[in-house]
Design a protein around this nucleic acid. Structure first.
Lengths: 180, 180
DNA sequence: TCACCTTGTGCACTTTGTTGCATAATCTCG
DNA sequence: CGAGATTATGCAACAAAGTGCACAAGGTGA
């Protein structure tokens, strides 16, 4: 399981409340992982129980019943161990190629518009990632942590490329498809 | 959910028993989806209950208590509808980039061997896919179903490429990494 | 002041996915 | 024939992920 480790990483980068974490999952962490706020709160509870993180006492009372968490040393150790752990790569699980395969059997009626919609979404995400890259990784920053974070982002960019190219290829194979 | 649709597709290509399906999921369908035999049996039960598939009466008794399933017209209709359905792309969920990100925070000790191991696995899978391509898609076959199945396989190949390139890139960024 | 909005936290339930084990029939070899 | 391997199906229990809704506190404006 990776969600707890994703949370530990995010909290080490900056102690945060549940909702802040949720927002950060929509951005940087989210290139390769997503989570809803409910998942995150539940996981924060478990991590606290397990003694890997703790609540920072609030200084000024804020909105709602806001709780900031920080990582304890046991949490840092767990994350350090996870980095080197032997784990099998988990098979990708994307329904879209499956749908193309189904279309090979029952016909591709109605598939093209859905593919074009996905193509557009991936183009948008690619553009966002490029913006982030320009903003956060200007040339010259080359301490190791920065280089590693950058290479993760480049992975996100590469992956969007993959989808864009593959979707274009599929659209070329579909009958009666006028280019968008 | 996509597992039932994956099963319907596989059964339309060829009526099969649970275990046969499991094996086919390890091969062709498996470029983008995996399932254990337990998941498949459970799902076959649900699909039968729902009237989308039925058991073919066995002619000669075979090993164990083998049951072959075939798709009913309701199943074919469901699959046809699914092909055109509007669904959001589900975010990729791979822990490996997350681990690289964690390494940016707690240090990359022990990460390189694990990355090399994954690199090797992806190279192997790429080689397998290329074999399948040579065997099943010789030049000249260009009826639509074949072209669509081929483009799905090409997606699998492209995806393995992605991993190989990205992993190589990460390894280049790690300190003290002698090329394998 | 009080109805309503926003921010923030969280429970309950459901669906999916995984692990481990149980069972049955058939085959295989001494 | 009968002990053990192989093929095949399936249940039970659990873990992980996703959906829907409730609740609490403070801010905002009629």
């Amino acid at each position: 399981m990776s969600l707890p480790h994703a949370i530990l990483t995010a909290l080490l980068e900056k102690p945060s409340s549940g909702l802040e974490l949720t927002r950060r999952f929509d951005r940087s962490i989210g290139y390769f992982w997503t989570a809803t706020h409910q998942q995150i709160y539940r996981e924060l509870g478990k991590l606290e129980q397990a003694g890997l993180i703790r609540v920072l006492p609030a200084e000024a009372p804020t909105r709602g019943q806001r709780k900031e968490y920080e990582v304890l040393s046991a949490g840092r150790e767990e994350l350090t161990a996870w980095v080197a752990r032997v784990e099998e790569p988990r098979a990708g699980r994307d329904p879209l190629p499956l749908r193309v395969r189904a279309a090979a059997v029952v016909g591709s009626a109605g598939l093209a518009p859905e593919l074009r919609r996905h193509l557009e979404l991936h183009r948008q995400r690619l553009a966002e990632y490029r913006d982030i890259e320009r903003r956060d990784f200007p040339p010259g920053r080359d301490a190791e942590p920065d280089r590693l974070r950058h290479v993760v982002l480049k992975g996100g960019i590469r992956l969007e490329h993959f989808w864009i190219e593959w979707l274009s290829e599929v659209l070329d194979e579909l009958p009666g498809d006028a280019p968008a």
